[in-house]
């Protein structure tokens, strides 16, 4: 799939923001007064900034409110509701903490749960697509939730928990890659099932419908060179997990902590870029995408 900057910004930033809100809601760390205020500002800038970035992806952002109507069937709509609910609940909780020095625990917990629901709903937008086998698996929500939690723990200064989560997410990411690389072929999508013509390996695109590109080829038939994938995966994991963990294990100071956060966020962008760029859409089969099952046959 085309790795659109607006969507990468949206998923990474809002993941971090809602991850941080999760920990704030659980009083990890317990905050009050100005500290609470600045923590909340960071979380809201990330979460709201991410949501705003997502509207740049829309052809008609001025109609964005219409997307609240279909929560019964559409994950994109549910994601909208979940994020608004989270922002309202955590706003109320935060307002009370900052201005009235009252921490209503259950309200914070509700906000924490809603934060996770929001991240989960975002991931379901991708998970629900049977047309993209790499995403169409419980690995996707697990990965989004783990990423949001590790980023949130890091931002909330939960050092020990952050180390554990960063390692867990890194390992889970490796497993998800391993499984994801095989899923397209395992699902049995081939140019022969797409066209109904002959056995795999004996049907090939002779002429595309047009000589140039079209919306479909630009949006969905995006490929990354294999050798770049291996490098980017290493760079992504190094920045996302390894370097922050090493930095956190060093004697603590604020510069080192900032370095860990920056490295983690940069890594999150690389990994999210790969999440999109590597995802193969079945429509590619009609456009002469290499047919993994066919080559094996």
């Amino acid at each position: 799939m085309h790795p659109a900057p607006s969507i990468i910004l949206f998923t990474v930033l809002s993941g971090l923001g809602f991850g941080l809100l999760f920990f704030l809601g659980l009083d990890m760390p317990p905050v009050s007064g100005w500290t609470a205020f600045w923590f909340l500002v960071i979380a809201y800038v990330l979460a709201v900034g991410g949501l705003l970035a997502s509207t740049f992806h829309l052809g008609h952002p001025e109609r964005a409110l219409k997307s609240f109507t279909q929560w019964r069937s559409s994950w994109l709509s549910r994601e909208g509701w979940a994020s608004v609910a989270t922002l309202l609940v955590m706003g109320a909780w935060g307002g009370l903490v900052v201005f009235f020095d009252t921490d209503i625990l259950p309200l914070g917990w509700l906000g924490a749960v809603l934060s996770l629901i929001t991240v989960g709903a975002t991931s379901m937008i991708y998970t629900q697509l049977r047309t993209v086998p790499r995403w169409n698996h419980w690995h996707t929500p697990a990965l989004f939730l783990l990423s949001a939690l590790s980023g949130g723990a890091l931002l909330a200064g939960q050092v020990t928990l952050a180390i554990v989560l960063l390692i867990a997410t890194g390992l889970f990411q490796i497993w998800a890659w391993h499984a994801g690389d095989r899923r397209f072929a395992a699902r049995g999508h081939t140019v022969s099932s797409a066209t109904g013509l002959g056995r795999p390996g004996f049907v090939r695109l002779f002429e595309p419908p047009h000589t140039g590109s079209n919306y479909l080829t630009r949006e969905m038939v995006f490929t990354v060179a294999r050798r770049h994938v291996a490098k980017l995966r290493l760079i992504g994991l190094g920045l996302f997990s390894v370097l922050p963990v090493v930095l956190l294990l060093l004697p603590f100071n604020h510069f080192i902590a900032l370095g860990a956060v920056l490295s983690h966020v940069a890594g999150a962008f690389v990994l999210r870029w790969l999440f999109f760029a590597q995802a193969e859409h079945v429509v590619g089969l009609y456009y002469g995408r290499r047919d993994p099952a066919g080559i094996a046959a």
Partner: peptide, 16 residues
């Protein structure tokens, strides 16, 4: 007149 141009439906269609 209701479409926001999010493109998700095109992603969901296997046939392009």
């Amino acid at each position: 007149s209701d479409c926001i141009g999010c493109g998700l439906c095109a992603w969901a269609c296997p046939y392009g």
